[in-house]
């Protein structure tokens, strides 16, 4: 793949905090990580004239997403990254369709094809680690540009809400302890 077209590496990792609960969409942890910006280096920030609250279009060989950006000077100029698995489809996990995860959270998955390019034997191999089955995140290369102004106030792609198989979640959550 010509490097010039996709000069940046795009990485994700799961936030450490999210490992404090495997169970479900946790009411506490979603306050810590309810949205995920795409962290870009100071160089990229300046080069594209980003300002706080801006959105960027991130393009790979496979697709395009529109995401919120944040500046991180401690990051090298060839890499962009974000927290993984914060973005949710509207209605998922019995969250409100207005949940921040479903609007300002996003996934890099849309930039990664499930299959590797054809190799000439008529078969296309899965784009994943042959042992663990993990998608090959660290292979992802992208290019970035500032999103044109006037776009929607949510990340894209944006899919229709899915119906929740469980009843709506409670509003206020308290557990344990003394209540008076």
């Amino acid at each position: 793949m010509p490097e010039g077209d996709f000069p940046l590496h795009a990485l994700t990792q799961r936030p450490m905090a999210m490992y404090h609960s495997w169970g479900s969409q946790n009411a506490w942890l979603r306050q810590i990580h309810g949205v995920n910006p795409l962290f870009v280096s100071g160089e990229i920030w300046a080069e594209h004239g980003f300002a706080e609250g801006d959105w960027a279009i991130l393009t790979s060989a496979h697709g395009e997403i529109r995401v919120p950006v944040a500046r991180m000077d401690a990051l090298n100029g060839k890499t962009v990254w974000t927290w993984n698995a914060i973005g949710k489809r509207k209605g998922a996990w019995a969250l409100s369709p207005e949940a921040p995860e479903a609007n300002r959270g996003f996934l890099l998955n849309h930039l990664i094809h499930e299959l590797l390019p054809p190799r000439g034997d008529g078969l296309r191999w899965a784009n994943s680690d042959p042992v663990t089955g993990q998608a090959a995140w660290y292979d992802l290369r992208v290019r970035i540009r500032k999103a044109p102004p006037g776009g929607p106030d949510h990340a894209e792609p944006d899919f229709a809400p899915i119906a929740s198989p469980v009843p709506p979640a409670p509003g206020t959550v308290r557990h344990g302890g003394r209540t008076s």
Binding site: A17, H20, S21, Q25, A27, W28, L29, R30, Q31, I32, G34, W93, A94, L95, S96, E98, A99, P100, A169, P170, G171, T172, V173, R174, H175, G176, G177, R178, T179, S180
Partner: peptide, 27 residues
Amino acid sequence: VVSCKEWNSQSPLGAPLADLDAYGAAP
């Protein structure tokens, strides 16, 4: 952060630490 909230929510010393709009738009 999490262990603090866990311990202090179950403590008999005081009320649990609440989460409003826990699964909504503005938790």
